[in-house]
Computed example of a mutant assay.
Amino acid sequence: MRLPTEPGPAHEASLAVARRAVELGVTLIDTAYMYGWGANEELLAEALHPYPDGLLITTKVGVARSGASGEWKLDGRPPVLRAQVEQALRRLRVERIELLQLHRIDRETPLADQVGTLRDLRTEGKIGRIGLSEVTVDELNQAREIVDVASVQNRYNLLDREHEPVLAACEAAGIAFLPWRPVAWGETGAKAEIAAVAAEVDATPTQVALAWLLGRSPVILPIPGTARIDHLEENLAAECLEMTPVHRDRLDRLPEVA
């Protein structure tokens, strides 16, 4: 999402970031139609196609531009979802999207129509697995009555645990939980405690936040975004960060920030 796609030096830097991520062992890259209205998907294809074995590019559909102003709105009508999947296949240069996620549930379209369309596209071989984004436990359960759900992508981080029940439901069902906005800073006191833990484990606050997520549940797969190689390398180094149970307990007790 954060990678610039406009022509010029920033575009070349974006290609380098994507390629470096794969060099460092990243096996899942998250994109969406909404990220540049397809431009981000095209950028990833330019950078990485033909894709190496084991690399999964996941994209999202269900958001459309509307009106002369180009404002975005949720649109989960079956013809729109079908068209966006076909466009994503073309932009990503693949015959099947291994993980396709519904960007948001469109409240004006029956949920059964939305996930049913994705189920049909899976049957047709155009989708491998189906995921959801920003859902409640009840919505997840409703969707699972219609189709197998492989992933959920909700906002979740050290200081924002609103979707803790959804994480618990995913863990119980063996569904991957991909927290977006995995790093977020809140009130001064919370930031000070995170900084203190970071100093004690010789890491950055960002690395502490990501390491906390990685240790929170075996189904969590954080998807931090960046447009810089140094930030990318900093993020990935969080995987090797070791924190004691005492450190984790201090972080667990941090207040959520609205």
Rank of each mutant, 00 (worst) to 15 (best):
P52C: 08
G189P: 08
R161E: 07
S217Y: 13
E200W: 00
S69W: 08
S217C: 12
V208P: 04
L251H: 10
Q101D: 14
I194E: 01
R155S: 11
R2Q: 14
E46D: 15
K60M: 08
S14M: 04
S14Q: 04
P179I: 11
G67R: 06
G215C: 04
T59N: 02
V17C: 13
A203I: 00
L251P: 02
E164H: 14
A238H: 03
L214E: 10
V61R: 04
P222C: 09
A150F: 01
G225W: 01
A203Q: 05
A184D: 12
A198G: 05
Y156A: 13
E171W: 14
G38R: 05
C240T: 07
S151G: 12
G8C: 08
T244S: 15
E242Y: 10
I175E: 15
A258P: 11
T204H: 14
V246P: 11
D202Y: 07
A169H: 09
V85L: 15
L81W: 03
V26I: 11
L221N: 01
R96Y: 01
I105F: 08
A238K: 02
L74V: 08
L48K: 05
V183T: 06
I146Q: 06
E6D: 08
E108R: 09
V183R: 09
P205E: 13
E233S: 03
Q101P: 14
L111G: 08
D252I: 03
T136N: 04
A21L: 13
V26Q: 06
G76Y: 05
A47M: 12
L178A: 06
L214F: 00
E139A: 10
A211S: 09
L210F: 01
C170G: 09
K191L: 06
E193M: 03
M1L: 13
I146E: 05
H163M: 14
E134V: 15
V137P: 00
T244D: 03
A10K: 10
E187F: 00
W212P: 00
K60P: 11
W37I: 12
P218A: 02
L74K: 10
M243K: 10
K60A: 07
R104L: 10
H103I: 03
L118Y: 00
G25W: 07
A192E: 13
T31H: 06
H49N: 00
H231S: 13
P182A: 09
H163A: 13
R155Q: 12
T58G: 01
W185N: 04
A168I: 11
V137T: 01
V183H: 04
A196L: 01
S151K: 11
P52H: 08
L121F: 02
A195L: 08
V197F: 01
A190L: 05
A199H: 07
L210K: 04
Q207I: 07
Y33T: 12
R107F: 11
W212D: 00
R161L: 01
A199E: 14
L74R: 12
D113F: 04
A39T: 05
R82T: 02
R129Q: 05
V246R: 15
H163N: 11
V208T: 03
R20Y: 15
A192L: 15
A176L: 14
A190M: 06
T59K: 02
T206I: 14
